[in-house]
C-alpha cells in the first residue's frame, strides 16, 4: 500500500514553500502533490521518494503532518477508464474521501491516488485489482 504525506498548512503566503524548502534540503523528491483547500487552512498531500524520511524531517521542523495509506491505481490513459475504476468502487460500497491524478505517458499510463474512507476496513484493493487495475506501492511510484 502506498503512503501519502499529509501536511496541515495555513492558507497564507510562504507556507507551502517552507515545506518544499525543508524537503529539498534532505534530498526528497516530490513525485506528485495536491492541495485540499479548506478555506483558512489546507492539507498539502505529497507522494515522495522516501515517505518515512520526509515525515521525520517535517516533524522535526514542528509541522503537523501524518502518513496516510492511499490506493495508488495505475490506469490506462484511454477514454472511460476513470469511469470504470469509479464504477467498481461504487459497486463495492467504497467511498472516496479525496483524490488526485496525473498522466505519466500520454496515451499510455495514468496514476490515480485515492484516499478511501476507512481504508483498512474495506476490500478496496482487491476490488480494484479484480477489475484488472494495477495497484502500486511506494517503490513502484518512485521508479515510474
Amino acid at each position: 500500500m502506498a503512503k501519502q504525506l499529509h501536511i496541515f498548512v495555513e492558507n497564507k503566503p510562504g507556507r507551502l514553500r517552507a515545506i518544499t524548502d525543508n524537503l529539498q534540503k534532505v534530498g526528497i523528491n516530490i513525485r506528485a502533490f495536491a492541495i485540499q483547500d479548506r478555506g483558512d487552512y489546507g492539507l498539502m498531500k505529497l507522494i515522495v521518494s522516501n515517505p518515512e524520511q520526509a515525515h521525520l524531517s517535517l516533524a522535526d521542523m514542528g509541522c503537523a503532518c501524518a502518513l496516510k495509506d492511499v490506493l495508488a491505481v495505475s490506469i490506462p490513459d484511454r477514454p472511460g477508464n476513470l469511469h470504470r475504476l469509479l464504477s467498481v468502487l461504487v459497486d463495492g460500497g467504497i467511498n472516496i474521501v479525496d483524490a488526485h491524478g496525473f498522466v505519466l505517458q500520454p496515451n499510455q499510463q495514468g496514476i490515480c491516488i485515492l484516499e478511501i474512507e476507512n481504508l483498512a476496513q474495506t476490500n478496496a484493493e482487491q476490488v480494484v485489482r479484480k477489475a484488472g487495475f494495477d495497484v502500486l506501492g511506494n517503490d513502484q511510484l518512485n521508479n515510474l
Binding site: 496541515f8 485540499q36 479548506r38 514542528g62
Partner: peptide
Amino acid sequence: ELYSKMFLGEAKQID
C-alpha cells in the same frame, strides 16, 4: 495552534 503529534492527516479531524 494544532498540536503536531495529535494530527491524523484528515481534514475531517480538523473540522
